[in-house]
Design a protein around this nucleic acid. Structure first.
Lengths: 340, 340
DNA sequence: TAAATTTCCGAAAACGTTTTTGGAATCTGT
DNA sequence: ACAGATTCCAAAAACGTTTTCGGAAATTTA
């Protein structure tokens, strides 16, 4: 490994001059600089990031936590697309991404892990269980480490989050169903702990209310983003309400299960019952019939999140606020006018 | 940030003693050690990774390159599952993952990027264009940096790769088709540059030969893993050979396109024509009808790859060899006995 | 031409660790 | 009680940078 010393020796100057030359300081003779740059190229020199970060206290690295604390894997519903955006824009700004593996050997917290690695900021994209606000999250929030989360209401001096407009998205779905003439609309929600689940439920209720429909709490059931629970919830609704004509489901993956269950029970989609999902995952458009759904702009979310994070990193005085990304209703084949 | 110095001061010992105490050296008095550990806990101390890696020349970080050089994104067909395995086993061994963003600002190569960040090893999972062996790959291969790739035949002192047994997998598919009585079996391949594509083609040919069927090069077409090209290739076959009864396709995503095209042209799957894919991506099982395919064990591939990499890192004398993971034929609904 | 200014560069400290070396203190055996 | 062995620890160098400070040389100004 060729170091700054090697260059200094060859160029006949001091290491400090080499450093200044390579970092575009102004107080260095153009010819000297040229010689040094030339030498650096020849010797295939690249600065040692560890040494740099040691003195600068800047690593040009963004830490990423995802999945839950149990290290269960890359199972966020749209982890891929979000992280892809993050990677792209962070990359253009000169950052690399450090994926924490949560090695369970040492029981370090988010905060200590970040400090240990010296990341400039941290990006959180957690699933289910991770979303319970726990001490670790609070610690991180108060640590002063710049941090941005997806779908997880973090707020602090240097903390913020990005989410979809789940409330309005849900309302759009319900409005559309109402416009098709549906009156008995069941809701299969997520869980009781996530803000996201709450907002979608709230949007559902608001949509119905504004449409002049009374809310029947029997029509609201939770699927917990799990296949079995969703199936169960669907059956519960079906048994109690033979006259149901539409389902609004809080995630596409659950919506697909709902459709499956419906078909197993002899219903046709959308002829007998309409179904709307949420997320617009890949499978939604590939499914037969293609799923009508509320699309989350995953790329936009990722991009907004990382821009936000970089702003927090760069501007010491910036006081961040949450970013709410609009949703779009994507009409496909699982919705039809109500016949009853 | 509390450093080793703070602890030393408080404990009334030297920094070297603190370091030795914390790193389980034997020549330190049990009581001293206890006091130091206690203090470290109280002060919430964690070692600065940069400083550590500077002196140790070990970062406990594994670099990850994925996508092509154009920074096109996380588009490897099963990036997620492989990287999930990598993360899990690397995490248990104490490594974090550094995702290189290929910031195109500086035109650094794989090798310099790795040296700069001081990663202990590097993991490559590239798509299409990245697979052309280029100078960067050669440089990396010869750099002495431990490195393991997926589906990319890297070989060197400290380099290796993991792949599926594409040859045998393809043969299994053809054998199965032959067993169902099919004699006219078309092949939609990938491209001309990947070893993977070559092996699958070779397996197809071997399968036919062993079954006593003459190979008709008209039946072999490439889809280049693209929707349009695949559609085109399918139509070409269909036009020339009205009597075709089965397609073996080199990837699931292409197989799905083939099926779509078949249906558009009035064929039924599997009643008129059987189709077998390759990969077993998520959509394969969810498709109606569910796709018969050759499954690649993605988790196993990732796990084997990272184990291999860690072995190369740890054992200076270890001369690595490629790991070939078996494929499994998953019989679903797109294959049926030949009626002709 | 002397003084003032500017241009350019080197020395050295600092970042937070690990690791080598040597030595003081204690312990062991005789 | 003395030599030798053992136990424990401190000092210091090293890793590869950046950055501050000051100063010599060159240039400008008066």
């Amino acid at each position: 490994m060729t170091s700054i010393k090697d260059i200094a020796k060859r160029a006949g100057v001091s290491v400090s001059t080499v450093s200044r030359a390579l970092n575009n300081y102004q107080d260095v003779n153009p010819q000297t600089r040229e010689k040094i740059i030339q030498l650096a190229r020849e010797l295939n020199y690249f600065a040692n990031a560890a040494a740099k970060s040691l003195v600068q206290k800047r690593s040009y690295t963004i830490g990423v936590f995802f999945g839950d604390q149990m290290n269960s894997g890359f199972d966020h519903p749209f982890f891929l697309e979000v992280i892809s955006a993050v990677r792209e824009v962070a990359g253009n700004a000169g950052y690399d991404l450090l994926i924490f593996t949560n090695s369970n050997k040492n029981r370090a917290t988010y905060t200590t892990l970040c400090r240990e690695r010296g990341v400039d900021g941290v990006f959180l994209i957690l699933t289910g269980e991770g979303k319970k606000k726990n001490e670790q999250l609070v610690e991180l929030q108060e640590s002063g480490i710049p941090c941005v989360a997806i779908d997880l209401p973090l707020e602090g001096e240097r903390c913020s989050y990005v989410e979809s407009n789940n409330y309005l998205g849900a309302k759009k779905a319900v409005n559309y169903l109402l416009g098709l003439g549906h009156k008995k609309i069941a809701f299969i929600g997520g869980d009781e702990i996530g803000k996201l689940s709450f907002d979608r439920l709230y949007g559902y209720k608001a949509g119905l209310s504004e449409g002049g429909i009374e809310i029947d709490s029997d029509l609201v059931n939770l699927g917990y983003f799990s296949e079995e629970k969703t199936k169960e919830a669907t059956k519960t609704v079906l048994n109690k309400h033979k006259d149901i004509t539409a389902f609004f489901v809080a995630s596409d993956s659950m919506a697909l299960v709902v459709i499956e269950t419906l078909i197993e029970n002899g219903y046709r989609v959308p002829e007998d019952i309409s179904v709307i999902g949420f997320d617009d995952i890949k499978e939604a458009s590939q499914h037969k019939p293609a799923l009508t759904t509320v699309r989350q702009s995953k790329y936009v979310m990722g991009s907004e999140a990382i821009h936000l994070l970089m702003k927090i990193i760069d501007e010491a005085t910036y006081r961040p606020y949450p970013v709410v990304v609009p949703c779009e209703l994507i009409i496909r084949e699982t919705t039809a006018p109500c016949k009853k």
